[in-house]
Computed example of a mutant assay.
Amino acid sequence: MQDTTLLQMMTDDLVPTRQLLDLLQAESLILHGRNMVEMEQVLAQKQALVVLLEQHGRLRSQVLASLGLPTNRKGLEELASQSPIGEALLQKGDELATLIAECQALNEQNGKLIQLQQVTTAHQLRILNGGDTPTLYDSRGSTAGRARPRPLSQA
């Protein structure tokens, strides 16, 4: 009975996991275009899917734990070895794990892109505020003093 419940849970989670993967791909495109209006919508949907998938993951772990099995791949393998639908359990478990790994990898790429954009924006702001002026040489060959920061209206 628990094996069919677990199989159904994993099958049901494939749809929101694919939706999350699609949202992460859309997020990547939006980050490149810097469209913050669309980003807010994607982030709201992404957050809802992550919460849902976390809840379902805890439920799957509880099912395995209630059977006295480890709450990881090894536990799933043990359950599959005792179940007539064992092969389907392993196949759905692998499919779900692959999708989740793809989501994690894409999320990390998006995070790196966000960090890069933050560094770039901070650099641009330093230039506009006059805090990132290059060291120049004067007519005597010595370096000129650092320029004082200017208001943005004078940049």
Rank of each mutant, 00 (worst) to 15 (best):
Q154H: 13
P151D: 11
A101I: 00
K112Y: 08
M36D: 01
L76F: 04
A105F: 10
R58E: 07
G145S: 15
I114E: 07
V42D: 03
L7D: 02
P151L: 12
V42F: 00
A122F: 11
N107Q: 13
T121D: 07
M9S: 08
E87V: 08
R73E: 02
L49A: 06
P16D: 05
L31K: 07
L90C: 05
L106A: 11
S61V: 03
G68I: 05
L69H: 04
L125W: 10
Q55E: 15
Q2I: 04
S83Q: 07
T4H: 15
E27I: 04
L6M: 02
L79M: 14
Q82C: 09
L116D: 09
E27V: 06
D3I: 03
D138E: 11
L136W: 09
A44Y: 04
E87S: 14
V42G: 03
L20Q: 01
M10K: 00
R34H: 12
G86Y: 07
A144W: 02
T17I: 07
A105M: 06
Q124S: 15
D132P: 02
I100L: 11
G57I: 04
S66E: 13
M10S: 05
A105V: 06
R60K: 12
R58G: 01
K92H: 12
A48T: 08
R60H: 06
L96M: 06
N72Y: 10
Q124T: 14
H32V: 11
Q62T: 06
S139W: 05
T98N: 09
Q19W: 01
P70G: 01
E77P: 02
E40A: 13
P151Q: 10
Q2M: 10
S61Q: 13
A155M: 04
L49W: 02
A101S: 15
I30E: 04
L152W: 09
L125S: 11
L113W: 09
A144G: 01
E54C: 05
R34Y: 13
Q8H: 13
L21V: 04
L125N: 11
L49T: 00
L7W: 00
E27Y: 06
D94P: 04
H32S: 10
M39A: 12
M9P: 00
Q47V: 06
N129W: 03
V50W: 02
T4D: 06
Q55C: 09
T120Q: 10
Q45L: 08
N129D: 07
A97N: 07
Y137T: 10
